[in-house]
Structure formats: C-alpha cells, structure tokens
Amino acid sequence: MKKSDSGNGQERGLSRRQFLGNTLKTVCGVGLVGMGLGFYARQADSLPPMAIRPPGAIPEEDFLGACIRCGLCVRDCPYDILKLGQLGDDVPTGTPYFTARTGPCEMCEDIPCVPVCPTNALDHNLTDIREARMGLAVVVDQETCIAFLGLRCEVCFNVCPVRGDAITLELQHNDRSGKHALFIPVVHSEACTGCGLCEKACILEEAAIKIFPNHLAKGELGGHYRLGWKEKEKAGKSLVTPDLEHRYNLPEGVRYELQGEGLIIEQGQGAGEVPFSTNPLDTLNRGLEDK
C-alpha cells in the first residue's frame, strides 16, 4: 500500500498538505455558515405577538424543533385560517400561524388540524378544543372599549365559544351618569382558549380585546408567594398571630360590624338614649328647645 502511495509521486505528498489545508478551509467556512445560521435562527425564532400558533402547539421553543413545516395542518383547517410563514415574514419560515383579527380559530369539535401533525408539534393529546390554550384574550384598552364608556356592547362576550366562562360581564357603577351600570368584559384564563373570535368580533376600528401569547398576557407570582387567606383556609386557622376580635371604643348601645352593616345602634336601649334621631331635623334642633 505504502509503495503505491509513493508510487504516485510528489503529487501525492503535495496533495496531502493541500488536502489538510483544504479540509481546514472547508471546516472553517462551514463553521462560519453554522454560526451565522445559529444567530439568524435566534433572531428568526421570535414569534411576533399577533401570530398565534394552531391549537395544541407545544411551547414555542420546542415547537421550532418539532415542526417540520409540512403544512398539513394548513390543509386540514376547514376554515383556511392557517398560513405558513414565508421568508421575509416575521414568523419563522414555514411554520403555521393565524391572525386572530382577520381569521380566528373557529374551534372545531374534532380539531382536524392536530391529528395530521406528523411530529407532535401540535400535541395529539389535545382532544377537547376547550382545553386548547392558543393564547389569551386581553382587554388591552379600557379607554376605547365602549363598555368602559358606559355603552352596551358585549359583542366579545356573546361570540365567545366558551360563553360565560372565558369572558364574563362584571357590573360596575357608572360614575359619569350616576345611575347606570357599566357591563365590563373580564377574561378568565382558566377558560379562555385564545381562539380569537372576540378579537375578530370587536366592533372598534382597532380591537380593544386582543389575543396575546400566554407568556405575554400572563403575569406570574413568585414561586415562594403564599396567599395568606388561602393558607389560612387550608390550615383551618390563622398561621400567624391568633385572630383577636377588634375592640371598638363606642358609646354604650352602639357597636360596629366590620363585615358590612357598619355602625349598629341597639334599639332595645330606649329611644331617648339614641344619640341621633331618625329625623335629621331633630338632631339639628336639639338644644334649641332648651334655650
């Protein structure tokens, strides 16, 4: 073997050095390409907040390793809401998304987009569309949402497919008119699937209720955080100092109830002892009679 190597003459010796040099060059070049790709990938991997992944999508960082960009989910969406990111879009190339304002998820009972996913980028364990968490609706603008202006709208409440659970209407006093209620839409994350039907339906020029990815929409308590009243409920008693009843220094026949009733004047003590009359005029006139 050795002989045949050297038999090829100097060319062989030269080409060995060349070979090493060329290999090194190639490796360096490819390495640089790799670094470039790596950095580009980190940049390209940031999904814009208005692009919502299909139901069952696993967390974004895992999704980008799982989605092979085949577009089968796009094809099986009966409402044709899903698109694949294209080069030049903000969405990572080839990955599926929808835009709630223009085409929200219609929440099909059989979720046809999920079982076709060949790589579980859309989790096949999702069988109840109500368990989907594509994002979370947020009432982003209380200044323009007409419910906050005291007008009856409730469109988001009414189109919600999880009606009454994901969005509820909370009545508040209308300070401006003084005699009406505000019907304030409130989103509940334990029921909202992030389908986006509310954002689509919002009657404003620019929706006041929007779907955001969960990590943008939700806060998170510190892991060490304990809610005193819940801990107390769990333990059946206060966990710090024992509860002492508050003592009020009030005139005889008068007591105070913290839980709502407020000042209570005991009737049994006789009308004469009551500090205030039921008729305010009596109180004002008191003393005048004596003079």
């Binding site: 790709l37 790596g38 580009y40 960082e61 960009r69 796009v74 694949l84 080839g94």
Partner: peptide, 27 residues
C-alpha cells in the same frame, strides 16, 4: 445545539417547493 430545526429556516430546496405550493414570500 439549538433545539430548533435551523436549516429549514434557509433551505432553498424545501423553501422553493413549499413556496410554490403555499406562497413564496421572499424565497
């Protein structure tokens, strides 16, 4: 290394085929 299918972000092969079927963008 990255946990992400990086090559498919720039792969002209899949991008051209997918582009013709689903929309080309800047591909």
């Amino acid at each position: 290394v990255t946990g992400s299918i990086v090559w498919e972000l720039v792969n002209p092969v899949s991008m051209l085929f997918r582009g013709i079927v689903f929309g080309l963008g800047m591909a």
